[in-house]
């Protein structure tokens, strides 16, 4: 089927149309930054952007989320109140292909296995993903190191492509096809298809050269005791920015809060970069220093996850590279891993 199309100057009409059907999330200006948030007015959506500071994972996995509530009888909380799951139809518009692919990892961790995470699963099942192909990959982008690319449609329901003065929309999933059929947009014409192809070609030209990540899990196998981790972590401030801004980081904590008139159990994003993450009540900490925490971050993303669920815990969005206050670069770390492994094999 030929792609559909709408003119860029019709964006707010398109957004309004989506808003009439679903609760819509898209890049909107919030607190002096562009962020994936619920769209309040159709004209606030910004699609002409490189990437957001925070990833769209917050739509399906909120930074802080209420899991259950408690009510009180006599002096203690002793009643459990269920919080309804978020099953309201939603869509995320304009996320980059790297971010769309990040949900595939969430699906493997939260949506599969012996236990299904029902909070995530309810949101995921009720959310359409309208990804926007990336015409301006940044120097920090490395999605192509994973065999992906700025026009990858994996993880999306609909892939949108820039075609100059219009966006082309193509269904990737059945859910996406059903929505496109309902929307009744115009079919894309030859000129726009041509323009989109040119922009796609130009986007691929902008990708920086990078070695493929594939196989890194085998390189990491023997590096648990390596001095490398101390070297890498030396300048790390343990601020956690890399993990909070990561579209695939999904580790969380669960805490109880007491409010006036009730209590609640919430889960919040947590970070392996923090000492408290693994601290026992006895005072013992199996990851006692930043070197062991850095090792965990790298091993989890590039050895344990591929081993356990078949996907890397990284999509190459480059947010950790852009936002690290001491310029630690995960690409450089992976290069060092390769070197370390090579020198180990030689010796």
């Amino acid at each position: 089927m030929e792609p559909f199309l709408f003119a860029k100057d019709q964006l707010s009409e398109f957004v309004a149309e989506l808003m009439s059907r679903v609760r819509l999330y898209a890049p909107v200006p919030r607190d002096q930054e562009l962020r994936f948030d619920e769209v309040k007015t159709p004209d606030e959506v910004v699609l002409d952007y490189r990437n957001t500071t925070k990833p769209p994972k917050m739509v399906l996995f909120p930074q802080t989320e209420r899991m259950i509530a408690f009510a009180q009888e006599r002096e203690h909380f002793n009643k459990v109140l269920q919080v309804p799951f978020d099953e309201q139809p939603k869509a995320i518009l304009g996320l980059r292909p790297c971010d769309a692919r990040s949900f595939l990892l969430f699906d493997k961790v939260f949506g599969a296995g012996k236990y299904i995470d029902p909070y995530y699963q309810a949101r995921r099942k009720s959310t359409l993903i309208l990804a926007l192909a990336c015409t301006h990959p940044r120097p920090t982008c490395f999605c192509h190191a994973f065999g992906s690319g700025p026009y990858d449609s994996e993880g999306a329901d609909i892939l949108m492509r820039d075609a100059g003065d219009a966006y082309l929309l193509e269904a990737v999933s059945e859910k996406g096809a059903a929505l496109l059929e309902e929307l009744g947009l115009a079919q894309a014409d030859q000129a726009h298809l041509q323009k989109a192809a040119e922009l796609e070609e130009a986007a691929y030209q902008k990708l920086v050269e990078i070695e493929p990540v594939e196989g890194i899990e085998r390189d990491l196998e023997d590096l648990f005791e390596s001095e490398l981790w101390a070297e890498i972590s030396e300048k790390c401030l343990a601020c956690g920015t890399c993990t909070y801004n990561c579209p695939t980081c999904h580790c969380f904590t669960i805490e109880d809060r007491v409010l006036s008139g009730g209590g609640e159990r919430v889960r919040s994003w947590d970070s392996c970069m923090y000492p408290y993450f693994t601290l026992h009540a006895s005072g013992h900490n199996p990851r006692p220093d930043q070197a062991s925490r850095w090792r965990q971050r790298v091993m989890h993303k590039f050895e344990y996850l591929p081993h356990n669920v078949g996907l890397y815990g990284c999509v190459g969005c480059g947010r950790c590279v852009v936002n690290c206050p001491v310029l630690l670069d995960i690409r450089q770390v992976l290069r060092r891993v390769r070197q370390e492994r090579a020198s180990k094999v030689e010796s």
């Binding site: 961790v109 947590d270 026992h280």
Partner: peptide, 19 residues
């Protein structure tokens, strides 16, 4: 073994010993 745990169901990502 004992490690600090939150979820107890393999999601929250902290009690791992290697993989």
């Amino acid at each position: 073994l004992e490690n600090r745990m939150k979820c107890g169901i393999g999601k929250c990502g902290r009690c791992n010993v290697g993989p």
